[in-house]
Design a protein around this nucleic acid. Structure first.
Lengths: 410, 410
DNA sequence: CGGATTAAATATAGAGTCTTAATATAAGCA
DNA sequence: TGCTTATATTAAGACTCTATATTTAATCCG
């Protein structure tokens, strides 16, 4: 009997190390360089511990020592502190907005800053051709990704995570309902498998959900707020954030707005863009010789852009249409905010910039249906970028959450 | 230089101990007695650790050693294992359903089993008197609690937590909106302060939310499911569970159904009980000499119970009313399930037992508005007990979550 | 230019936790 | 009584964090 002292990991002692490392990394994620003293205040840990953790994180590639030790520091006396900086280029992510008509891919660093972006058409607007078959759509997406990578000057090996947004419901494992709706299958032809080809972590999600994540990113700090983001182009879709986290369950059908068929004054889940065009067409048919700016277009060629532009110029017909859009929006907001007691509702998507007034008017109209003085209704500042930015945000979050096990090397 | 070795807690090492103790306790909460070996498998910890933790928990009063060491164990050879049992009587909780017309209080042990229950009238039904003022309502509630305690043979000191359910929205700190709606203020006259009088932990929440918690309790195991519970007596209210956790945000207005005013075929947030009475009254006025069982009541005295009973006996008018209720319910379900992609919707409250058929018929009618074959619509088996059971569940959960710091001694 | 001052980094000891392995204990069984 | 079996107890090892003392790297000032 004697010395088999025994090796082996001493159990869950390391767990606490992992947790603290993650805590330190999260404190520094995307922020300015920090000194140990700052991190001590932020985490409550001791200097010795902090410095050990920072050394480890530096070895793993998450941090680097930053040289400007004294400049940024407030003090001028004493030994200058080491400053560790978050390495925003430790690895990169790709966010893709795979819309119906076009695909946009962006390469971003861990701060979420885009350093490469590319767009490719897909099912060109106005064309009557059948939708792109699955293999072609997959190829379009991969091409767009490669173009974005090329612009960023990076290779496949530099990427750690890929997130793709599609206009379809997506379940928690990245698939869309099969056999039910051909459109959904063609929008999301098993895109979840695209990541595996290069060994990337990969996620697919609904476009409205990701737009909501993008807004959450902007509102950082207000972890308590609850809001919905409405994507409002051709078809309506919504993403819902409650208490600072995105609602999502296994089937992924949250925010599908088919039930609006039953709401008075809405009666369909067509988007505000669709309604603008539709109402303009009807109005022009009824008043063929309309003299305002909107009259420049024929009923057949008129688009939502025409309506918004004409309304800017004070066209009476266009303003009437805007008012109807506001009423529709108000009713939609009543349903969402009434049921879920939201703090705000954001209208997003490509046409959002044109809807600032509509949102304000909807807020006004809403008071006749619902008492909710705290509710804000606004057009998103992100507009057409929202979905892509949300995809990037999710990708960065995934890296952040899985961070520790082994460093950023994919 | 020398021996000032230093005392002081060695920082966050104890944290891991806390976490493990909590883990072990949660493994045993409400379950059959366990041996160390079983807990080792459940938690992944070592025998030595488990036994230390169990000894500590026993000292604190959460566990006790159970004597039947060998009986329950599958094995017959070897040294018999120690068996530790969860002490369901370590402390007790009180759940109160403070409804409009009556107040029910129940005393329960940590397993949630009721060992005392009492009911008192409050704002008696049918009376035209103004609502009870705040002090009187508070006294009624305290009286009911004392009666329940007396029945259980316990004193104030045996209680650790009090949860009160009220028919009003309740924010995260237990208050209801002030000045907005006199009814809400009278239903929840700062009831959150009632706990402080005896030093109990205390929470107040909306009745529909708590009914949802009660259903969640029944469905234990299915942590993935999402559902809504609709309380459907006089006024509608809903509690929503997503992915196994109750939705709740700071203002507490989730599940308020005022927005149903805008839904076609619903047009109000009156409950199914209200509608049954209202439709019966109208029908009897239109057909004064109605020969079926429903005709036994005059239009003035008819109640929803009359309608349900008459429908049981095949009364034609009553059946038509039931069909209209089903249509209403179907439309409500479309809105809730369509927006939130729920797995099931439960109709609860005192009249739930009479609504089994209505729920089934609503499920059938719903298919014309919404594709959701996975959706179940059912009448809750808990009926009038749902709210009170949810209050108990929340109280037990609060104890469970705050458990460790110092033992069950309040 | 060298010492005083200052604030941070490093080194060392201490306390706490878990695991591992060895040892002791309490039964049944032959 | 002794063997087998399964558990409880104990002691040693590894790892973590904290707390204190010591060293280091700068500035300031005479």
């Amino acid at each position: 009997m004697s010395q088999t002292p025994s090796p082996g990991p001493a159990g869950s002692s390391q767990l606490i190390r992992q947790l603290n490392a993650q805590r330190v990394l999260h404190c520094m994620w995307g922020r300015e360089p920090s000194t140990a003293t700052e991190l001590m205040h932020a985490t409550g840990l001791t200097r010795a511990t902090i410095l050990t953790l920072c050394r480890d994180l530096t070895e793993q590639g998450w941090l680097q020592v930053s040289e400007n030790s004294r400049q940024a520091g407030q003090y001028t006396k004493g030994r200058p502190a080491l400053r560790y900086a978050f390495r925003e280029d430790a690895c990169h992510v790709i966010g893709v907005d795979a819309g119906l008509h076009q695909v946009t891919a962006a390469v971003a660093n861990l701060r979420g800053v885009e350093i490469g972006c590319a767009t490719r058409p897909s099912n060109p607007q106005g064309s009557d051709a059948p939708l792109q078959p699955a293999p072609e759509r997959r190829r379009t997406i991969l091409d767009t990704i490669d173009a974005a990578l090329a612009q960023a000057g990076l290779t496949h090996a530099d990427v750690a995570c890929l997130v793709i947004a599609v206009p379809a419901p997506v379940d928690c494992s990245g698939h869309s309902p099969k056999g039910l709706n051909e459109f959904w299958s063609l929008m999301n032809p098993e895109l979840i498998t695209l990541g595996a080809e290069h060994g990337w972590d990969c996620a697919v999600d609904n476009d409205a959900n990701l737009a909501a994540l993008a807004e959450l990113d902007l509102a950082s700090g207000a972890a308590e707020d609850s809001f919905a983001v409405i994507l409002s182009g051709e078809r309506l879709g919504a993403g819902i954030v409650m208490d600072g986290s995105l609602l999502h369950q296994s089937r992924g059908g949250i925010g599908e707005l088919g039930m609006l068929d039953l709401v008075q004054g809405v009666e369909s889940s067509n988007g505000l863009g669709w309604w603008a065009r539709h109402l303009a067409r009807e109005a022009l048919k009824q008043a063929p010789g309309h003299s305002g700016p909107l009259g420049a277009a024929t009923p057949e060629e008129v688009t939502s852009e025409h309506v918004f532009a004409a309304a800017e110029q004070g066209d009476r017909l266009a303003l009437e249409i805007m008012d109807q859009l506001a009423d529709r929006l108000a009713r939609i907001c009543v349903v969402l905010a009434g049921l879920l007691d939201l703090d705000r509702i954001l209208v997003s998507g490509a046409i959002a910039p044109a809807l600032t007034d509509v949102a304000a008017r909807a807020k006004h109209k809403l008071t006749q249906y619902l008492y909710a003085p705290w509710l804000r209704i606004e057009a998103s500042a992100l507009g057409a970028d929202a979905v892509r930015r949300g995809a990037i945000r999710l990708a960065v979050d995934r890296i952040k959450d899985q961070a520790l096990p082994g460093g950023p090397a994919a």
